[in-house]
Amino acid sequence: MVMALVKKDKEVLKHTRVSSTGVNPFVTWRRFFMYYLGIDGGGTKTKAIITTAKGKVIAEALVEATNPNSVPEETMKLRFQNLLNELWKQSNLQINDIIQVFAGMSGVSRQASKQRMKQILSVILEGYENISVDNDAVTALYSGTFGKPGIVQISGTGSITYGVNADGEHGRVGGWGHFIDEKGSGFSIGRDALQAAFKALDERRIPTLLGEFILEHFHEKELPDVIPHVYQAADVKVEIASLSRLVFKAADQVDTIALSIIEQQGEEIGKSIARLISNHFKEERQVVPVVLAGGIFNRVDLIQETMAQTLKLLGKKVHFIMPEIDPAGGAVIAALKKDGIQINEHEFIQNYKMSKRG
Rank of each mutant, 00 (worst) to 15 (best):
T16V: 15
K118C: 05
G41E: 01
I154S: 00
Q115C: 07
T21Q: 11
S355E: 02
G294S: 01
R191H: 10
I154D: 05
I120P: 07
T310I: 00
A59F: 00
G211S: 15
T310M: 01
V288D: 09
I206R: 13
K316W: 02
E212P: 06
Y36L: 01
N96T: 11
I325F: 03
Q264A: 14
A48C: 04
M354S: 12
V300M: 11
E267I: 10
T208H: 01
D136A: 04
S122K: 09
N67I: 01
I206Y: 09
S106W: 03
T28I: 09
K183I: 08
G150H: 10
A293C: 10
S244M: 06
S20Q: 11
I349D: 00
L215P: 06
V23E: 13
Y35M: 10
I160E: 05
F102E: 02
E129P: 06
E345M: 05
G55T: 01
K316I: 01
V133M: 00
I131E: 08
L125V: 07
F218Q: 10
H319K: 14
K249L: 14
A59E: 02
I333M: 07
K353F: 00
E239I: 03
G174A: 00
T51G: 03
A197W: 00
E216T: 13
A308N: 12
L84H: 04
I321R: 07
H319P: 04
L215W: 00
T52E: 02
E216K: 15
M105Q: 11
G163V: 01
V57S: 06
Q286R: 13
F297E: 03
E347D: 14
E222L: 11
F348Y: 14
G147I: 04
T139P: 05
G340D: 06
S260M: 08
F297Q: 06
K271R: 13
L87D: 07
K271H: 06
T46Q: 03
R245D: 07
F320A: 02
L201R: 14
A308T: 13
D167I: 02
S132R: 10
G127F: 02
T157H: 02
K271P: 04
F179V: 13
W29R: 12
L314R: 15
M322V: 10
I58Y: 03
V254W: 07
F32M: 11
S109V: 10
N135K: 10
K8V: 06
N24E: 05
G171P: 07
V12K: 14
E239F: 01
I262W: 05
L223W: 02
D255M: 04
K249N: 03
P25N: 03
L292D: 05
G329T: 06
V226T: 12
V138M: 15
K316L: 00
L78W: 02
V101S: 07
V236W: 01
N351P: 05
R205K: 15
N298Y: 11
D301G: 08
L84W: 00
L62W: 01
H346G: 04
H178V: 12
H170I: 15
W176R: 14
D136G: 07
E74V: 06
A4I: 09
K338Y: 10
D9C: 14
H15P: 05
V18S: 14
A335Y: 12
G174V: 02
I333R: 11
D255E: 08
F33A: 09
